[in-house]
Simulated assay, not measured.
Amino acid sequence: MLQPFADEIWIAAGPTADVAGFTYPTRMAVIRLSGGRLFIWSPVALSEDLRAAVEALGEVAFLIAPNSLHHLFLPEWKAAYPQARLFAAPGLADRRRDIAFDAELGDKPAAEWAAEIDQAVFAGNRITEEVVFFHRASRTAIFTDLIQHFPPGWFTGWRALVAKLDLMSAPRPEVPRKFRVATSDRRAARAALQRILAWPTDRVLMAHAPPVEAGGRAFIARTFRWL
């Protein structure tokens, strides 16, 4: 069910998803823009309860796939809200040719939300180029897979060893090692990071880590200290 997170932002947990042999929790965010239009970030499985809660907030206007890995539930949301515009992260349209995307996300926010949400493409990564968002009113930065933190015991057996080596289950949130190694264009990545660090971030939302409620800019700087 939707839970309030900050001013005009709600979050919801969905069912776990199995990807490459690993089980991941899922989380989405809903931002209500001026006029009542809803910006749906990384939508999770659409249950009847979730649908009712979302529709109570406003009109579903924008469905956002923030990287090329978060796309599992897009078709069911588009079917439920055919009037909503579907935005793809760089590279996703080629991966999901079965989905008719309306536009690709870039470094500049779309005109429909530019006054309220900024964004930056974290470019230069061979795994995925993630689009990071910043909700101005609540000072919230939103990451998807670039920062992760799984609690002890989430993974077991050989998966637990892989997660430890990959920094997915490090003592505190980190950029997984696979994303660090896959950063082939560090100049582009650093340019994106500088843009993100220029935002006056207090809070940070992530798909696979507990939210950060304060000190967001320092948290981001520490997490990307390797870069």
Results as ranks from 00 to 15, higher is better:
residue 89 A to S: 10
residue 89 A to E: 03
residue 90 P to G: 04
residue 90 P to S: 05
residue 91 G to Y: 08
residue 92 L to T: 01
residue 93 A to C: 14
residue 93 A to V: 04
residue 94 D to M: 01
residue 96 R to A: 09
residue 97 R to L: 06
residue 100 A to E: 10
residue 101 F to M: 06
residue 102 D to E: 04
residue 102 D to Q: 12
residue 105 L to D: 04
residue 106 G to M: 12
residue 106 G to R: 02
residue 106 G to V: 12
residue 107 D to T: 07
residue 107 D to N: 15
residue 107 D to L: 08
residue 107 D to K: 04
residue 108 K to G: 05
residue 109 P to N: 00
residue 110 A to S: 08
residue 111 A to K: 06
residue 113 W to G: 01
residue 114 A to G: 15
residue 115 A to D: 11
residue 116 E to Q: 14
residue 116 E to A: 13
residue 117 I to G: 01
residue 117 I to M: 03
residue 118 D to S: 15
residue 119 Q to L: 09
residue 121 V to T: 12
residue 121 V to A: 04
residue 121 V to M: 06
residue 123 A to E: 12
residue 124 G to A: 08
residue 125 N to M: 08
residue 125 N to S: 12
residue 127 I to D: 05
residue 128 T to Q: 15
residue 129 E to C: 08
residue 130 E to A: 02
residue 131 V to I: 15
residue 132 V to S: 07
residue 133 F to E: 06
residue 134 F to Y: 13
residue 134 F to L: 13
residue 134 F to K: 02
residue 135 H to V: 13
residue 135 H to S: 02
residue 136 R to S: 14
residue 137 A to V: 06
residue 138 S to A: 11
residue 139 R to Q: 15
residue 139 R to A: 13
residue 141 A to G: 05
residue 142 I to D: 05
residue 144 T to E: 12
residue 144 T to D: 15
residue 145 D to G: 10
residue 146 L to E: 00
residue 146 L to Q: 09
residue 148 Q to Y: 08
residue 149 H to I: 02
residue 149 H to Q: 09
residue 149 H to E: 11
residue 150 F to G: 00
residue 151 P to L: 05
residue 151 P to H: 07
residue 151 P to M: 14
residue 151 P to W: 10
residue 152 P to K: 07
residue 153 G to M: 10
residue 154 W to T: 08
residue 155 F to L: 13
residue 156 T to C: 03
residue 158 W to M: 13
residue 158 W to Y: 15
residue 158 W to K: 05
residue 158 W to Q: 05
residue 158 W to N: 12
residue 159 R to F: 06
residue 162 V to D: 07
residue 162 V to C: 04
residue 163 A to W: 02
residue 164 K to V: 12
residue 165 L to K: 07
residue 165 L to I: 11
residue 165 L to W: 09
residue 165 L to H: 05
residue 166 D to R: 00
residue 166 D to I: 08
residue 167 L to M: 14
residue 167 L to G: 04
residue 168 M to W: 04
residue 168 M to R: 10
residue 169 S to R: 03
residue 170 A to T: 10
residue 170 A to G: 09
residue 170 A to S: 10
residue 172 R to T: 14
residue 173 P to S: 12
residue 174 E to P: 02
residue 174 E to T: 05
residue 175 V to D: 00
residue 176 P to W: 00
residue 176 P to E: 07
residue 177 R to K: 07
residue 178 K to C: 10
residue 178 K to I: 08
residue 179 F to L: 14
residue 179 F to D: 00
residue 179 F to G: 01
residue 180 R to S: 00
residue 181 V to L: 14
residue 181 V to D: 09
residue 182 A to Q: 11
